[in-house]
């Protein structure tokens, strides 16, 4: 510390205090969020062996002072040689895109209606949106099993009122996965949309109406463009986590439902192939880095 003496007393303590305050959460996140990815990368380059832990060491210290590096790209080559993995990435992408669009359409209608509701209702309505957001994901997915399964409540209801003769097969299909995703992620879409729509300057809509614009056209040319930040935030909050979703395809999907989060889980817990599981995670991460950075930027813009 060369310039230690130049800083006057109270100011110095302020500076070092400032440094400490930044350092506490910074170091925590570096060690428990960022650092672990280095281990994932490292293990994705190792080879699986029958041992504890079940992978080879990357650096072999031996008896020389310079370690020999033993890296292998086998896990990555394996991912590209077996079409299962590429299909799983593509299928996750498809499911994530379709369910984001579905969630947006349903979420927008609800958020828009809550924002337009009389102000004395709004608090209660917003609370009704937040409540499922706080309720366990697992429980909300589980709730659908009893409804969707072949001898479940939906088929029972439809057959009782005579709409169908034979039970519909929904459980363990992609349709059940879509229902589960839209249901579980709906609050994540509604909340940012509502925050945006509620702040919207109503005089702009009145101006459009006064100038003879039809309500439908006003919606598309004024409301939707103005709510674009909310739409983006909501879509990121749904799309990114759905890409790696595990619980929903596992509980509601069937053997046909391919999603990469489930593949990763299987590789890790059932096949105990840690290097391949790590490689799956690294490629998924690489696909999601850009959306995550765009999400971060949109959030920072919203705060400032």
């Amino acid at each position: 510390m060369k310039n230690k003496q130049k800083i006057p007393g109270p100011f110095k303590s302020l500076l070092s205090g400032r440094f400490a305050v930044i350092a506490i959460p910074y170091v925590w996140l570096l060690s428990f969020f960022l650092l672990p990815f280095i281990f994932v990368l490292k293990i994705s380059l190792a080879e699986p062996i029958m041992a504890i832990p079940p992978y080879t060491a990357l650096l072999n210290w031996g008896d020389s002072w310079l370690p020999s590096i033993q890296a292998s790209l086998d896990s990555y080559l394996f991912l590209f040689s077996d079409s299962l993995y590429i299909k799983a990435y593509l299928s996750s992408l498809k499911i994530a895109i379709i369910s984001t669009i579905l969630t947006l359409i349903i979420g927008y209608s609800i958020a828009y209606s809550v924002a337009r509701a009389p102000s004395r209702w709004r608090g209660i309505l917003l609370m009704l949106v937040i409540l499922p957001f706080w309720t366990s994901f697992l429980i909300r997915v589980y709730a659908w099993i009893g409804i969707l399964k072949t001898e479940g409540l939906l088929n029972l209801a439809l057959m009782t009122i005579g709409l169908i003769d034979k039970p519909l097969i929904i459980m363990n299909t992609d349709l059940a996965v879509y229902i589960g995703i839209v249901y579980s992620y709906l609050p994540f879409m509604i909340l940012p949309l509502y925050a945006n729509l509620e702040k919207m300057d109503m005089s702009l809509l009145e101006a459009a109406a006064d100038l003879g614009c039809r309500p439908f056209k006003t919606f598309w040319t004024v409301t939707v463009p103005l709510s674009l930040p909310g739409i983006l935030a909501g879509c990121f909050l749904v799309f990114i986590p759905v890409m790696g979703e595990f619980v929903i395809p596992d509980l509601l999907g069937g053997s046909e439902t391919l999603m990469i989060g489930k593949v990763l889980w299987t590789e890790f817990f059932y096949n105990r192939d840690w290097p391949v599981a790590s490689a799956v995670a690294i490629i998924l991460l690489a696909l999601l880095v850009v959306p995550i950075m765009l999400y971060q930027r949109s959030q920072e813009k919203a705060i400032s």
Binding site: F39, A277, A281, E300
Partner: peptide, 27 residues
């Protein structure tokens, strides 16, 4: 980087966070 580390865990698929944290603990 700091704000990235604040926002990323909120959207990052849980399987990635779970796997990476575990691998660090094992290593």
């Amino acid at each position: 980087l700091f704000s990235g580390m604040i926002y990323a865990p909120m959207v990052m698929p849980e399987v990635i966070i779970g796997l990476s944290t575990l691998l660090m603990f094992v290593a």
